[in-house]
Design a protein around this nucleic acid. Structure first.
Lengths: 136, 136
DNA sequence: TTTAAATCCTACTTATTCTGTAGAATAAGT
DNA sequence: ACTTATTCTACAGAATAAGTAGGATTTAAA
């Protein structure tokens, strides 16, 4: 199960994609009330999405958030990595966040590792097939 | 990422599958020391695997654990559900543990739900393709 | 029948993560 | 200046993770 953070992130991105017209931005307040997300929690999430260049923002009274990428370029995989961490089920099966298992007996012959690398590949493919565009 | 509990469960099941001969059982102590798993934690995990009829046990000095199913009948999906809960990423996309989202705006038209039901199906297929037999 | 060795059971602990809140600083438009 | 937004940092309460502790129970063998 994903965290509420990730669910809110998805809902917020979908909302922004649906409600931003040409050169416009969407306010945190609107997203929070319409998509039913605790506002102060949402602020933090949007800030993190901004740090990762998925959205950008304008401050001030005409401010708000807007997407920095096309909806079909924002994949579930990217959101997952941001909110939940590595997609791999164990660190030794991760490409970007590889770490040996502290309780590993023999990594070279560990069949669990190879099986979970296979799962990771399939999961990434699944997660990349879904984007904000498919959720609008 | 899976919990240590689940990783230990997998390792223990693999160890039992590898080391139980005809009518024999495997001791917690052996599993713990050879597979590098904290013993008291492992006890709890094996107890839970027993409650779920994946393993069975004998008490006493010749006691220990043995598989209740064939290795190829113990799927990653079953172990996951036992250790981590539902496979679905959100409760509203779960079949066995369905619950509506508390923050849902309109479930009937929620595209996130449908996308995550799709992900669930694919994940289940992936998790069922791996069994203890493939990890021996 | 006693004893040793194993599982079984319940409770507790410690650290971390999750899910938010609070409040002030900063920026921009009117 | 004033209003309205984002930005930043800190904090708090609850839940979960990852074990530990200690004894009760069961069984086989001496």
């Amino acid at each position: 199960m994903i965290s509420k953070k990730m669910k809110y992130a998805i809902k917020a991105l979908v909302y922004i994609a649906q409600h931003s017209k040409e050169n416009s931005s969407v306010k945190t307040n609107d997203i929070a009330s319409k998509a039913i997300i605790p506002k102060k929690f949402l602020e933090q999430i949007l800030l993190e999405l901004k740090k990762n260049r998925i959205v950008n923002s304008r401050q001030g009274s005409m401010g708000g958030y807007y997407l920095m990428k096309k909806p079909n370029e924002i994949t579930l995989a990217a959101i997952y990595r941001l909110c939940e961490g590595p997609i791999a089920l164990v660190s030794c099966a991760s490409l970007n966040y590889y770490e040996p298992c502290s309780d590993c007996v023999d990594e070279a012959t560990c069949k669990i590792k190879f099986a979970l690398i296979d799962i990771r590949q399939k999961t990434i493919a699944n997660f990349e097939s879904i984007t904000i565009a498919t959720l609008i």
